[in-house]
Each structure stands twice: as C-alpha cells, then as structure tokens.
Design a protein around this nucleic acid. Structure first.
Lengths: 259, 259
DNA sequence: CGGGAGGTTGAGCATGTTCAAAGGATGTGG
DNA sequence: CCACATCCTTTGAACATGCTCAACCTCCCG
C-alpha cells in the first residue's frame, strides 16, 4: 500500500494520519498471475482496488476477436473510485505480470470521501490524471503516426514509473510483449517491431525483454510531440491544499460531535 | 438546468428535492458563440459547469497546428466534477454552436458531495459514463476502419441525444462540420466526406447540414461494432439505489444535528 | 529437448492521405 | 439587397503508411 501513498505524494504531502487512512482502506489482498483476468466484462463491478505490485491493463475484445488495450494500470493506480454505481463492467481488466491488488469495501470509500477530505482530494487528483491519460491517448491514436504512438507510450510510461520511484538510470521494468504494445497502440505487432528497431537504431530508446531503457528522452519526446504536463505531477495549487486541510479539520470535528 | 436532471434520471429517479439541490448548485449562467473557447489550455481550471444548451468539445492543438477533438459535450453533460484540484487545464473546451453554460462554485460542489449522497451518486455515474465514453473512443480509434469510426460516432451521439430527449423521428440536430468530425475521428475531412456519402448511399444514415437522420440503426451499429452498453443507460442497481437513499437520510440528519 | 509464444524479415497490397481545384452555402459590409 | 469573401462540401488522381501473409528464428519453460 505504500505505493499508492507514494503516488499521491505527487499531488500533496501525505502525513502519517493520511497514510493510515489509506492503509485502513485497502485491506483485502489478492494475487493474479500474468495473463489472468482481474475483472471481466459484463460482471458486477468489483470493490475499488489498487495495484500493490505488478501491472495490469483495461481492455476490450471486439466481436471478431481483436483486442484493444485502453489503458495500463501501474503500481499505485486506482481502479475507478465510483465504479460501484454501475450495473455491469463495460470492459475487462487483466494482469500483465504477476500482480498483487488490494481492495476496499464500498462503504469505506464513501466514508473516506466524507471524513477525509484531504485524502479524497488526492484520490480525485488521481481520477483527473486517469481521465487526462485517456484523453491524451485519444490524441495519440487520432493524430500521431506509428513512430509517434510508440514513442508516446514509452514517454508516458517513463514518467508514470518515475512518479512512483520505479525508474533507475533511465531504465524501468516493463512486462509487455510487442503484441501487447500493438493492441494498445492500434497497430500490428509486425509494425511495432519495425518501429522499435528504428527507435533503437536512432539511439532514442532500447526496448528489450521486460525492460525499457530511455537513451534520449529529449528527442523521444519530440518524436511523440510529448509533454508531461497532462500527468499533473507538479503538485496541488497552494490554495486548494490549504482549503482541504481546513475542510479536513472541520469534518473531523463534525464527526466527533455528530455521532 | 432541467437538462442535467433529465440526464441524471437515466441513472435513478430525480425527485423535487434533488432537482432543487441541482438547481441551487448551478447558479451563474454564461453564453458563448459558436467557435469560441469556453476554457483554454493552460488556464486555471474553471468552476464546474454543465452545458445548459448548445454543444461543445474538448480538444487539443498539436505543435504543428493539427487539432484533435477528444470528446463532445452535449446538453446536460458535466465538466469534470473534480477539476479544481489541478493547477492548469491540459486541454481546451470550445463551443461548437451557440452555447449556454451554468457554473457551480467549488464549495457548493463539495457540500453537495457530502450532504446529498443521492445526487452525488448521480454525478458519479455521470463521471463513470464520461470515462467509459473516452475508453470506447480509444477502441474505435485503435481498431475500427474509417467507416466504422464514422458510424460509431453517429451511434454514440444518437444514444446520448436520445438519453436527454433530443431525438425526434430518428433525427437530431448536430452542429458539426465535416472537418469537425475529421478532427474527432482522426481522419481527413476529404475521407470523412467520402465515407458519409457511402453511408448515405447504403441508406444507413443521412448526415446533412446541422442534422443527422438515422435510417437504419441496426445496420449502422453493425458497421461500427457498436453496443450502447457502455453508456450505462439502464439505471442504477437496486441495491445501490437504496443504499444511497439511506445514506442521504442519515447525512441530512447528521447535518441538522451537527451544526 | 521439444513445443509454443514472441521476435524478425520480406514482398505485395489496401486504406486513407495529400494535393489540387471547383461548386455551394452563409454571412457581412457596402 | 446585392457582392464578395470565407468556409464547407465534393471530386479526381497520385502517393505513402501501415497491413497482410508467410516464413524463419530465438528464447523460454515445461
């Protein structure tokens, strides 16, 4: 669970009380092996969960069997705070590597939203970030050529792994195959392969089995027309931070009096 | 403001008290003419707002001047409940037709989230729907050919306009030009034009100036591999509905006692 | 060691792009 | 109220990016 706290620290400082609130939230742990579904399309939405370790993706299978990966879930990523208001999942979530997830019951989430405004704000930030990631992917799929798309995805993953302290020497572990990348990028595995070779030969990035080494982030980001602004890693606006600190104090007072 | 209430009724019944809570929320109204920015990339996130009338889109301009439209905002659509936690907008929002928007101050939104769990649940549903719409667009851009994409967008708009009662005789008003469609679909205007002609000639749909007439929804949906499941128009799960009704009663009691 | 999945390579092909040009609609200013 | 400018729509032809299909190689992992 420390990963989630580490991620939220990109929004605003997480004190011990916050950390405890988060840890109290996600109690049940479960393991999934690479390739297995964590949630299946059509099923009843599960409890809210977060990736404690490993990696997963949201995907949908088309009638003709093709797959499209919509987004990747990294350690510390949350699965839809509010998904429980829906009747059925409209997509599946699968583990891409051996993965540990931690779940939170619905009531606990709702209580947290009410009584821990500061942590809530962090979770909202997280949701806004996921929203922004989806939107950027739309821009990439709509307007970038194959090289741009591949570069884009690698840049995004670099910064997201960076934000949770999982990059060492411009290198991070990535348990994706080329067919996985193709399904995320709307390309064929064959073409992804050719692009990766080109990027390697241009000494921009080296994508090997299970790991990625960024050799020239600057130029890679140019190929992708990438800016990391949309990840909103710069922290909360000062005004918002103090607003929620204040709100938190109030709510907790109300809580003690009211019950 | 009745449009938002009408939209939320797709999730769960909206009583007069709920309607009042919503109306109290969105007080300030403002008008924008077609083509003007409602929110600009890089600016400070605005108050939360909803489209009262007209139509808008989220978009981003690339360094080289190309535009990608990420999503369309129809009457009753909300602009990010939680956007105020961010420092700067990562995209712009523009009016596509003469548009009226209604805004809500941040504090009011937060109060609503705390003291009107039932309405909150509706707004959460709305957010989940927007999320799902983005994800589906990714599937479309990644895996559908040009005809599929065009058909997909038309199907989606059909159902969304349907949900707010703005379809008459399989026909709805759509103030989009072919270049607009192209920017949303990741195609060129020229190609969009050819596809529209083909769809018309196949008697699936007639896209004219400012309006769309669906001639054969069934077949159009087949071309797009479309299913409207992801829009979650089927209402809330019974269990969730009663859960929030109960929560609402509790919170309001707490509110009266606590202050 | 053998099977299966992932990775790599090549050649022909197709979908959608680019570029160019002309015909309509719309709306603005004279 | 007409004239003109602008943007949208439509059409054609050459072109290019990425796909398809097919084969072979390599690396795990059982």
């Amino acid at each position: 669970m420390t990963v989630l706290a580490r991620k939220l620290a990109n929004f605003s400082p997480v004190n011990d009380k916050d950390r405890r609130a988060i840890e109290d939230l996600f109690t049940v742990e479960k393991r999934y092996e690479a390739g297995s579904d964590i949630v299946t399309e059509g099923s009843v939405p599960p409890a809210v969960f977060t990736i404690a370790e490993g990696m997963a993706c949201r995907y949908r299978l088309l009638a003709d069997g093709r797959r499209q990966i919509m987004s990747f879930l990294l350690p510390g990523d949350l699965c839809d705070l509010h998904v429980f208001v829906l009747k059925a999942m409209d997509h599946s979530i699968a583990a891409l590597a051996p993965t540990r997830i931690a779940s939170a019951a619905r009531d606990r989430i709702i209580d947290l939203l009410v009584y821990h405004p500061r942590v809530s704000a962090g979770l909202w930030w997280n949701e806004m970030q996921e929203h922004a990631i989806l939107r950027e992917r739309i821009v990439g799929l709509g307007r970038l050529d194959a090289a741009g798309r591949v570069a884009y995805l690698l840049c995004e993953l670099y910064w997201r792994f960076q934000a949770i302290g999982m990059v060492r020497d411009h290198r991070f572990v990535l348990p994706l195959t080329q067919p996985d990348l193709a399904d995320a990028l709307g390309l064929t595995p064959v073409h992804v392969n050719r692009i990766l070779q080109r990027l390697r030969q241009q000494e921009l990035v080296e994508v090997g089995r299970r790991s990625v080494t960024i050799q020239d982030l600057e130029r890679l980001q140019e190929v992708a027309l990438f800016s990391n602004r949309y990840l909103h890693l710069g922290g909360a606006p000062e005004e918002i931070r103090s607003y929620f600190d204040q709100l938190e104090a109030e709510r907790q007072r109300l809580e003690r009096n009211g019950t």
